[in-house]
C-alpha cells in the first residue's frame, strides 16, 4: 500500500534554516544539510527546502546548498522559492533537486507550470498555494502571504493540475503557525476535486493533527516545520503514533 508521507519543511535564508511564525518573525534553527540528513535518518519521507532569501547572492548560496543536499540525502526533496523561469528550475534540477515548487511566480505567469512540466515532467512541478479563508472564500495570496489575488483556492488548484502540476501543496494561512491542526475540511474538498496528490501544510501542533489530516483531510502527505525543528514531535514518535492509529506509513 502507498504510505502517507511526512514532510519536514526547511525555510532557508542565506544558507541557514529558519522558521517563521505566521509568515513573519524568522528565527535561525540550524544547518540545512545536517538537519535534512537527521530527518532522513529518523524516517522523514521527503523534505521541502524553501529559499526565502530572494537576493542574487542568496540564490547562488541556495543552488550550492541544493547540490550539497543531493549529495547527502537518500530521500527525495523539493526546492522552492524564487523560481520564475524554466532556467531556474533547470538549474535546480541539475544541482540534484527532485522537484521544484512554484508559488507566486505561477500565479503571475501560469504558463510557467506548463513549461516546467513539459520540460522536465509533471512529477517535477509542485504548485504551492497559500490561501486564506476570508469572507466565505479561500483567497489565494502571493509574496509569502502578503498580497491577495483574485484567485480562489480550488479553481486555481484545478487549473494548476490541468497545466501539468504533479502535486499541490496547500498552506492555510489561517492555520499556519497556530498549532491547532490542519485545515481538514478545505483539504478534503481539494483532495476529492483533484486527481493529483495533495500535501497539507499549516497548523500541525499535535500528533493527533496528523491522524486528522490523513483521515478527515484525505491528504496524501503532511508538511510541518517547527514541531520537527524544535523537536516537539520527533519523526519516529510521530510515525509510531500514526501506525498505532492504522495510518499506513513507512
Amino acid at each position: 500500500m502507498l504510505a502517507k508521507r511526512i514532510i519536514p519543511c526547511l525555510d532557508i535564508r542565506n544558507g541557514l534554516t529558519v522558521k517563521g511564525i505566521n509568515f513573519e518573525n524568522v528565527v535561525d534553527v540550524g544547518d540545512p544539510v545536517e538537519l535534512g540528513a537527521k530527518y532522513a535518518r529518523e524516517g522523514a519521507d521527503e523534505l521541502v527546502y524553501l529559499d526565502i532569501t530572494a537576493t542574487h547572492e542568496g540564490r547562488k548560496l541556495f543552488t550550492n546548498l541544493v547540490s550539497s543536499i543531493s549529495e547527502h540525502l537518500n530521500i527525495p526533496f523539493t526546492v522552492g522559492g524564487g523560481i520564475d523561469r524554466v532556467e531556474d528550475a533547470d538549474q535546480l534540477l541539475s544541482a540534484g533537486a527532485d522537484k521544484v515548487s512554484v508559488n507566486s511566480s505561477a500565479v503571475r505567469d501560469p504558463g510557467l507550470i506548463d513549461r516546467i512540466a513539459r520540460g522536465f515532467g509533471n512529477q517535477f512541478v509542485v504548485v504551492a498555494i497559500d490561501a486564506q479563508w476570508k469572507n466565505d472564500r479561500w483567497t489565494v495570496y502571493i509574496n509569502g502571504g502578503r498580497i491577495a489575488t483574485e484567485k480562489e483556492l480550488s479553481s486555481w488548484a484545478l487549473e494548476a493540475q490541468e497545466r501539468g502540476a504533479g502535486e499541490i501543496l496547500f498552506t492555510s494561512m489561517n492555520h499556519d503557525g497556530t498549532k491547532k491542526g490542519y485545515a481538514c475540511e478545505a483539504l478534503r474538498e481539494l483532495s476529492q476535486k483533484l486527481s493529483i496528490p495533495v500535501i497539507a501544510s499549516g497548523g500541525a501542533g499535535e500528533k493527533e493533527h496528523f491522524v486528522e489530516v490523513f483521515e478527515k483531510g484525505e491528504a496524501d502527505a503532511a508538511l510541518a516545520a517547527s514541531i520537527f525543528h524544535y523537536n516537539e514531535i520527533p519523526v519516529p514518535e510521530l510515525k509510531a503514533y500514526l501506525k498505532k492509529n492504522n495510518i499506513i506509513v513507512r
Binding site: M1, L2, A3, K4, D45, I196, D220
Partner: peptide, 14 residues
C-alpha cells in the same frame, strides 16, 4: 487507470 487512486503514483510503496 483513471478514476481510481491519484495519478501519478507518488511516494513510498511496499
Amino acid at each position: 487507470p483513471a478514476g481510481g487512486l491519484k495519478v501519478p503514483h507518488m511516494g513510498w510503496n511496499s
